[in-house]
Design a protein around this nucleic acid. Structure first.
Lengths: 234, 234
DNA sequence: TGTATTTTTCTTGTCGACAAGAAGTCGGCA
DNA sequence: TGCCGACTTCTTGTCGACAAGAAAAATACA
């Protein structure tokens, strides 16, 4: 564990959000893998805080579904719910579509620039073959679009879904190839153009196709047949 | 304030959820109107609990956006965001449609019965001209449909939206007339039938129209011109 | 030796108290 | 009389300690 945060003295009220954000990131990046036990005492030592603020951060994480608390027993990082994957895909696809539509309809001064920054970062990650970077910059790109759409309900749900998606993708990130990501860059570019032109219908269909791509990719990872000797002659 | 809860001794762990649920209800039913200050000490006395479990309940409420905490200062019941109403209507309509569609597609054994129970309760409230009852039974009806749709992401968002809607409707419930509610009963009936027949397209369009009705009604409340002397000859 | 029961240990849930920060109050000064 | 600054008071944020509950360990018994 990194002990650098142990020394700094916290200003009042900042502690909780620091713990919250740190843990949140570590959970999403699978630094804390699903099922990991969360020990309050340990976190208390690590952040040099009493258990009370730690606890508050944990309550917030639990409200988001990132951790699961077994009453009076243990609290662990939530497992990835593979059985609920179809629901997840459905909601994810819907949010891709709605946010992109709204961005085309509602985007204001400056939104496009923000989206372009994220797209640039994604491109860099792709050319560097930085898989982890691709996953997180892709998320940022789509959240920027959602923000341009000006609907906080969608932004919130979409953020949750994309972050849950990050966890899943991390599990399989070794099987990432750079063919599809390359294609994503182009698809992103088309989406930006549709948004600029305020072409809602086109934005929708592009987002829909994009979502299908991503969902299809995740599904292929999960159901991948990696048996080395599946076709071995016996 | 009701002091009945003060005497009972709590079993470990139950306190937080009790406080959470009680406050949640009181906020949604405007028993605690928007802007009301939330005093931890006071709640501590009221529930006969220390401030720690109270605090946890408040953190959960804050995560849901029901209360707002001004750091180091006060914590108040969140205001109703009239500026964000268009976003709210958009998301609400979308959720009406998606959940009803999914219910038609996915509903399983027993779901219909559960929906019928809620519909019956709504009918009773309408015939009794019980406005507050209508608002909450209508909510229950649509959540039952959402649950039949089997997508927890939609159920969660929809619940939040409907509860926020309850707050808004309570503000205007005096202007409720019984014409539209009567119409809602019929619309609900049609939706149930479409779901049973697994007619996704029909379920969608019914839900869409239903949403338009409700949104339109809320909008008319808000923009109602109640000036008694607007057309007074001078 | 295997099982049931008690004991121990560890983690969570709760408590009362203290510290920091902000608003309101009071008094001083122009 | 009106404005500025120190002081008071109140609420929130944090702490260390205790209590309850559950799993693990140890013991007794068949």
């Amino acid at each position: 564990m990194d002990e650098s945060e142990k020394l700094q003295t916290h200003r009042r009220g900042s502690g909780v959000s620091t713990v919250y954000e740190t843990l949140r990131n570590e959970i999403i990046e699978l630094k804390l893998p699903p099922g990991s036990p969360i020990d309050e005492q340990q976190l208390s030592d690590r952040f040099a805080l009493s258990r009370t603020p730690i606890r508050e951060a944990l309550v917030r994480l639990a409200a988001e579904g990132l951790i699961t608390t077994l009453t009076n027993r243990a609290t662990i990082v939530s497992n990835i719910d593979f059985l609920g994957l179809p629901e997840f895909f459905d909601a994810l696809t819907l949010m891709y579509r709605v946010t992109t539509r709204l961005a085309a309809a509602n985007h204001a001064e400056g939104d496009i620039a923000a989206i372009r920054v994220r797209q640039k970062a994604f491109e860099v990650a792709v050319t560097n073959r930085d898989v982890l970077g691709m996953i997180s910059t892709n998320r940022d790109f789509h959240i920027a679009i959602a923000q341009a759409g000006q609907n906080r309900y969608y932004v919130e749900l979409f953020t949750r879904l994309l972050d849950e998606g990050r966890r899943i993708l991390r599990l399989y990130y070794s099987s990432f190839n750079d063919v599809l990501p390359r294609q994503y860059v182009g698809e992103h570019e088309e989406m930006i153009q549709a948004i600029i032109n305020r072409d809602v219908a086109l934005a929708d269909s592009l987002a829909s196709a994009h979502a299908d791509q991503i969902v299809g990719q995740i599904r292929s990872y999960i159901t991948a047949d990696s048996r080395q000797n599946a076709r071995l002659a016996l």
